[in-house]
Write a protein that binds this DNA or RNA. Structure first.
Lengths: 230, 230, 230, 230
DNA sequence: TATGAATGAGCATTCATTCAT
DNA sequence: CATGAATGAATGCTCATTCAT
């Protein structure tokens, strides 16, 4: 049912088959529920070969994460062409992002769902990718400010937070689009652009929403971070 | 190391202790990696008692999800007081949300990370909670439009997408805040309000970002949804 | 669903309720598959009470065996009246036997199926009852010979074997009758009497079926007992 | 203590070793009391290998039943040579039966004791074998009648009952012989032939034992089937 | 290069049994 | 007399991993 069982192929090819099978299995079953047996069978090879090439389940999963992270970032970077103005770059980057996540749902699941839920090691791996994308978006925001000849006057942390929020919204929309039939990548991108761009523009123009001095009352709505209940 | 081993307590109390231990363990280890042994030990009871009271690992996890979902939605609802104007409601709701997720990081991990990655049954459980929150936010958007005496003129799907994006951004920020020391709930809420409110305002005023006719090129950036690569 | 839960009843009564529940549960589920929980619930009492009265699962099972064995032997003895001629005694004893096993299928299952399959201790318990019945039947055979004024001239062991075979046939027929709707105790008894009585008569008259000198051939049909393959 | 621990042998061989160990363990301990651990150890392999080859305890037990049932029926069929007259066939079939049960006491225990007491599924498996043997015996009875040029004139059900009783007696004698040292297969067969053959002859000659009109009295000796006490 | 054979270690679940009241 | 609360000890089963060929 998996790849056609052809004997004696070069290592690189076999490895990709294994990663394909692994991404699919991890994406659908989850890291722990995926068994090496299933992956090997789906890849059309024997289990010892998987170990020979990829050492362990952990290493295999890490390899999956890396491959998928690379594919995703490359897709986004390829989408956002630097010669365009910042807003167009953001638009095309988002479109590329949604297109990629829609075409590789298992890879996306591995990155967004599985890698973050099964140990610090894997989480760190995606965090790196995410940081790269956030940095990219941050840069875009700053570029946009520069293009608009406006001094952004946004504190470092706030820009980070914005980029975080934007990326978070994009991730969430990707999940939602994958789960909702009929939503195109362009639609997702448009929704997010509409939502974000005007906000960013306003923000850069200094129009901010000002929080009330103090609306803290009663139950647990203390604004400051309190020690978490463990 | 867990709860003080006190013998002979009423069932209701013991059940809560077990849920505490389970939320913590599930939140940190993940559903599959968490062992009933560890949970029982952390709860200060023997494994059979856990089974006697909570039937199975699945049921235990479901009970965790329900308890944490209820706690979170109640915290948000308690935060957003309906007598306030819509923007203030959103603000205080967000603040309550970030406060709660910061104080209950394991509960938040259970809801946001674990429940969504370990089977349709659990995912459906959180999806219900999420839907409730999205509906709440959607209502807030519509109320805001009404308060501003503007005909929102936003198509149904777009409002849904907006609410999705907003909630997604909030979830993402919650994760980020939990992982970044020193970020307060107020800061997260302010970031998101700034990001979202102006954008929403512009949107309702009809200022939209218009996507270019066609910027598709080369690699995989087709805007339409294509069959996913599996 | 079990006995009506009445509080505070004399020990003897409670014990019988427990034995009722136990016989039913053991008969239907088997010794090992029957849980003390189920028995206690069916008896309408708490588990500790079962232990208080009957000590352990083993003791409880033994008590069941004894009670049912006693009931069965008494039914058979009561059926076979000693003032009748031997054939009539056998007939009425058989009828009583089949009647009893049909009316107490769970008790019969405990004796015939469960007790013999779960350890030497229990098997010995039924073996005693069985020996008693076999002895009774043996006596009947000898009586019959005496009544017919014939010197039986049957060696001890052969008579034992005959009684064994007769009892075994009866047991087998009891199972068969319990599993085959519409078979009455009289029918079972008649079948067996027809089958056995004439044979016994012939036998006592010296008409025997003579085994061939030696028909042993080839595979494993050695008549002598050989060391069992373990 | 178990089989000599030889490493790396072909699957078919290992499977037989496992079945040997399983038959022995199931036969002596019973289905439920037998642990997969014990079976694996006795087979000289690790537990996972047992599962790899035989899937589950249920499947393993079923495999045991099938193997032993096949061995037993083949032994009986091989013993009863069709070219002989019916009485000789019965004799040699019985001899083969007692020889086999004596040489394979655990296999016999699995079939006769364990399989019938641990679930319908297993019981059905042996019931099929038993039905085959009963049919074989029934045929022998009819053949015998034909050879004797007598119109048997035996109603269908009665012949079934007879065959049942005969087979039941044989089974019972097998148990008895296994438990009584010094009893040979020939002796058991002779006992049964003497017991049965003359009776059958008489029966076919129309000499029947006639039950009395009504000998019912008092306690529970009602001949008709009454509702069982549960 | 590739695999059939094999296992150590762990996990969810159940059960007979006992305390403390 | 009676029970709610609690557990030690198994048991069936699975999985990542390795060895011998």
């Amino acid at each position: 049912m998996g790849a056609v069982k052809t004997k004696r192929m070069p290592r690189a090819v076999r490895e990709q088959q294994m990663l394909d099978a692994a991404v699919r299995t991890f994406g659908q079953r989850g890291y722990m529920a995926a068994s090496m047996d299933e992956i090997a069978e789906l890849a059309g090879v024997s289990k010892p070969l998987v170990y020979l090439y990829l050492n362990s389940k952990e290493d295999l999963f890490t390899a999956c994460i890396r491959r998928e992270a690379k594919a995703l970032t490359e897709a986004v970077r390829a989408g956002a062409r630097p010669e365009l103005p910042a807003d167009r770059q953001l638009w095309s980057g988002l479109t590329a992002f949604f297109t990629h996540t829609a075409r590789h749902p298992d890879g996306w699941a591995v990155l967004h769902l599985q890698a973050r839920t099964h140990g610090e090691v894997f989480a760190a791996e995606v965090a790196a990718m995410r940081a790269e994308i956030v940095a990219f978006v941050t840069q875009l925001i700053l570029d946009a400010a520069r293009e608009a000849h406006r001094d952004p006057d946004l504190p470092e942390r706030e820009v980070s937070g914005l980029a975080e929020a934007l990326v978070g919204a994009a991730e969430s929309l990707a999940d939602w689009a994958n789960a909702t039939p009929g939503v195109t990548a362009r639609q997702s991108a448009a929704t997010l652009m509409n939502f974000a761009w005007a906000g960013l523009g306003d923000l850069m123009a200094g129009h901010r929403w000002t929080p009330p001095e103090d609306d803290t009352r009663a139950t647990g709505a203390q604004a400051g971070r309190t020690s978490p209940v463990r």
